[in-house]
Nucleic acid binder design. Structure first.
Lengths: 346, 346
DNA sequence: GATATCTTTGATACCGGTAACAACATCTTA
DNA sequence: TAAGATGTTGTTACCGGTATCAAAGATATC
């Protein structure tokens, strides 16, 4: 724990305690506790007396104390690779909506795509006694997995369908999504399908997408050409670069599947800048149905991924486990469907 | 016979306690506590004995207990109007970076632009005994303000420079930003400057932007025409609509300042669809320097706001107050600068 | 060498709640 | 009407740590 100012004892202003409420209402603290947490176990008269005492004093329960005493917390930890990536915000929103409604609180941190950092965060969350964990990455250190197992805290993994899940999984399959879109492009008649993706170091999603792409090529009877595969960073400029590189090294390329963040937009802009018809000269497909893609001209063919649903389902399953002890969810895998959105660019 | 761990009630699996570590190391719990939190107060030998016992047992401190006992927590509460709005993610990132580095945790929730919901969240955070609060809205219920005051928790307001700050403020001025951009457009020679903004109900940022716009018009000697002011919702489609409406009702309009989320992009697309030259027929200016604006054609003139810095500075000030008792920061207001980014669209 | 000071460790009493059980009143049911 | 069931409230012992102060040894000062 970080050092803090030692102005007197602790940092908080003195706040009313449950015993103050009890005294004011002329009852025991247990009655106050019951009136607040299990109102049905208390007579109407007591309930009113307690509640008015609470109001008069301006009492705020101390969650730290109640969690410690009851050995039950109402916080859930979420670790995303990157907080400022709009990809995750829909999922976070889905989680947040459900979690808040249940009176839980969300602790959020970002791992920066680093499993060691993730492990540290998991540890930190466990010391805070979160009652559940949501992890977006499917790549973890063995120590992290061990700590989670030892803690017994239920976990949902979110970003991919891992081979060896820790516990529960709610996701779409990156392999499947990339496979499906590549097949789609193949069926549309494209023969030289380039593939751009985010760096796959510490990014299992990225790796699975590449595998899906290759599996589809094989299925389509197309040769795999390494020059058609490019890994890059996020961003519009990266998308532009990809176009330049791939067209330069393989002029006969006729389609570009951008399986990563806004790469497709950057690629499309670059094509327009060069005066290339899309999809006439080169078709473009993207990986995530951000609003922008629909409004561009040409509108961009893409995959609609169940981002919000993933968050929502994750939260529901986690809360079932936590609140109702729904053990049948343990280890269950929910493979949510995606959808090819056919538009003008391919 | 001492109570067995496995019989303890609640949801958590058995976890080692400090007394288990103490027993193993043959010391008192206080020595363990010191070895972990104030290593300098313990002899080298003890420190080693304790640390190895910690490792052997796989002990994880219980933050709930230590916070309760020391009356000091390491969580900070953040309330944003909307979690899935990319506008805030940079600020959240700035906060997160600093906060994590100091060993604190971030609790995040969204108010949905609703002060009552915000109050509930503030209450919830206070029951969790957060040691600091970051609020993005500058509009609060009186009860919320009272609760915060009573709790004594330091607060930073982030989204705007409010007239009556609760405590600390780190922000740019929405009034000033809108004023500056409007003046900029005026100096460029535009005479009929339309203004599109997000709904101002429960959105003080939006209201202040409008005021800044009007103040600039006055300064420029231009008449205020209500038909040139449009409030709308977020989104590309809204931006498109704005163009349609404003041009229809005031054909002589020659500039459109979109002081809201991606409205400018939608507006630009709509102009292109209609074959209108930008800025020839109508100039367009935006409010936030999202990456996209630079890559569009024409590139879009906009304001660069110190989103990340706001988060970073907020966190630093908050942590100073919490850890070092930096009372001189109480009530201080940091007005961070913004910048007009002149591009092709205006 | 004796006292004062510092360092290191431990015993104890909490922090603010809740679980478990006890005590008592009231209500059922045979 | 007695015995058990049910409902309501209180008592006590914790949850897992830390603040506080006391105690004992080590070092310093005169």
């Amino acid at each position: 724990m970080p050092k803090q100012s030692s102005t007197r004892k602790g940092q908080f202003a003195t706040s009313a305690r449950m015993r103050d409420v009890a005294k004011r209402a002329g009852v025991s603290t247990m009655t106050v506790s019951r009136a607040l947490n299990e109102p049905s176990k208390v007579s109407e008269e007591m309930r009113e007396r307690v509640l008015s005492a609470v109001k008069e004093i301006g009492y705020l329960p101390n969650h730290l104390a109640s969690s410690l005493s009851s050995n039950r917390s109402t916080t859930i930890g979420l670790i995303v690779p990157s907080i400022d990536n709009s990809i995750y915000t829909q999922t976070v929103k889905g989680l947040s909506d459900v979690i808040r409604q249940s009176g839980f609180q969300l602790m959020i941190a970002e791992s920066g795509y680093d499993p060691n950092e993730e492990e540290e965060l998991i540890t930190a969350f466990l010391t805070h006694r979160v009652s559940g964990l949501v992890l977006h990455s499917a790549e973890h250190t063995p120590q992290a997995v061990a700590k989670i197992a030892k803690s017994g805290v239920p976990v949902v993994e979110n970003g991919n369908i891992p081979e060896k899940p820790i516990d529960m999984v709610v996701s779409y399959s990156n392999w499947d999504a990339a496979y499906t879109m590549t097949m789609h492009l193949g069926r549309l008649g494209y023969k030289h399908i380039a593939f751009a993706s985010l760096y796959s170091v510490h990014n299992d999603r990225s790796r699975d997408r590449l595998k899906g792409y290759r599996a589809a090529l094989e299925q389509l009877g197309l040769d795999y050409d390494p020059r058609l595969v490019i890994e890059t960073s996020r961003g519009l400029s990266s998308g532009a670069e990809v176009v330049a590189r791939v067209v330069h090294s393989v002029p006969e390329v006729d389609a570009l599947f951008c399986a990563g963040d806004v790469l497709a937009v950057g690629a499309l802009f670059e094509c327009q800048k060069r005066g290339w018809a899309v999809p006439g000269r080169i078709a473009i497909a993207s990986f995530d149905d951000v609003e922008l893609l629909r409004h561009l001209s040409p509108s961009v063919t893409t995959l609609r991924l169940p981002r919000y649903d993933i968050g929502e389902r994750s939260a529901r399953m986690l809360l079932s486990r936590i609140m109702d002890g729904a053990e049948h969810f343990r280890g269950s895998i929910v493979d949510l469907k995606f959808e090819v959105i056919q538009r003008e660019s391919a």
